[in-house]
């Protein structure tokens, strides 16, 4: 019982991390309808920035978070100008290559700036553990789940309750028509990438105490977040959460069952899922373009 409970907690914690990163995917799908395979690199950049501000410069946690968001938003602008803007309107597969090219670029630039050795970043809780009855809970996991809830609320409200959000979704559905009715789609693109990069970087600050900070920390979690987005339903906010949590739990369950073949189970499940339920748990929110 306690064993199962601890596994569930671990699965939910990892799942929340995947969901957190998956929000960036969902945002980009809703606004510009591309898959950004460099979303994981935003996580990496965020974690390194947190190390610089928090550990090297000794800034307090709140100031670190603000600074990370600000710098990451700038990275988002540069990213948009490199990997999206010059290629907008091209077919989706182009962005697989363009975003992965920038991902290689970011990882190697990070290695030159921060060096190849990994860092520890343990703010704000250090290595402390809470006890919930017999089950140890890592407070950082609770923070991640709370942050996920807040970010989901913000993103949901933004996409569906604000003018800018509505314009974003319109621009994603039909770029040309959106332009015709006066939506400045290029500006919207920039804003979208700023938010995507910032949300990825916040995820980086949050997972750094769990993953440690290294140039390689982003790619794996980016891929998992992509899987979560697919499982949940392409472009769906609740889908990203459901997909992330499901993936986290499946992974832990598979590890408990047979750790050597864990990823084989996870990918097998994914393929099965795609065949049986190709539109994901919550269905596809983005109409397919001809």
């Amino acid at each position: 019982m306690q064993f199962g409970l601890q596994l569930l907690v671990a699965g939910l914690a990892m799942g929340a991390i995947y969901a957190l990163v998956a929000l960036g995917f969902v945002l980009l799908v809703n606004a510009v309808n591309i898959i950004n395979f460099a979303q994981g690199e935003f996580v990496m950049v965020g974690a390194f920035l947190a190390y610089t501000f928090g550990v090297v410069l000794h800034w307090p946690y709140w100031a670190t978070v603000i600074a990370v968001v600000a710098v990451a938003a700038l990275v988002g602008i540069v990213f948009e100008r490199m990997a999206y803007y010059p290629l907008r309107g091209r077919e989706p597969s182009t962005f697989l290559v363009s975003t992965l090219a920038v991902s290689v670029f970011l990882r190697n630039v990070a290695q030159q700036i921060w060096g190849p050795m990994p860092f520890a970043y343990t703010e704000p809780f250090g290595q402390n553990v809470l006890k919930l009855g017999p089950v140890p809970i890592v407070p950082q996991h609770l923070l991640i789940i709370a942050a996920l809830a807040v970010l989901v609320g913000l993103l949901y409200g933004f996409l569906f309750r604000t003018r800018l959000g509505t314009m974003m979704r319109a621009a994603s559905q039909d770029r040309v028509a959106a332009q015709v009715i006066g939506i400045r789609v290029n500006r919207i693109g920039v804003i979208t990438f700023m938010i995507a990069a910032a949300s990825g970087a916040v995820a980086g600050v949050l997972v750094a105490p769990v993953f440690f900070v290294s140039t390689e920390m982003g790619f794996g979690v980016g891929l998992k977040a992509f899987i979560a987005t697919i499982i949940g339903g392409w472009g769906s906010v609740p889908g990203a959460i459901a997909g992330g949590l499901l993936l986290g739990i499946v992974e832990v369950a598979a590890s408990a069952y047979n750790s050597g073949f864990k990823d084989l189970f996870a990918f097998g499940l994914l393929i099965l899922f795609l065949i049986v339920l190709p539109r994901g748990i919550f269905g596809e929110k983005i109409a397919e373009k001809a």
Partner: peptide, 10 residues
């Protein structure tokens, strides 16, 4: 599209 990409990556 993305579903096929994902299935083939898997």
């Amino acid at each position: 599209n993305q579903y096929l990409t994902m299935a083939t990556i898997g």
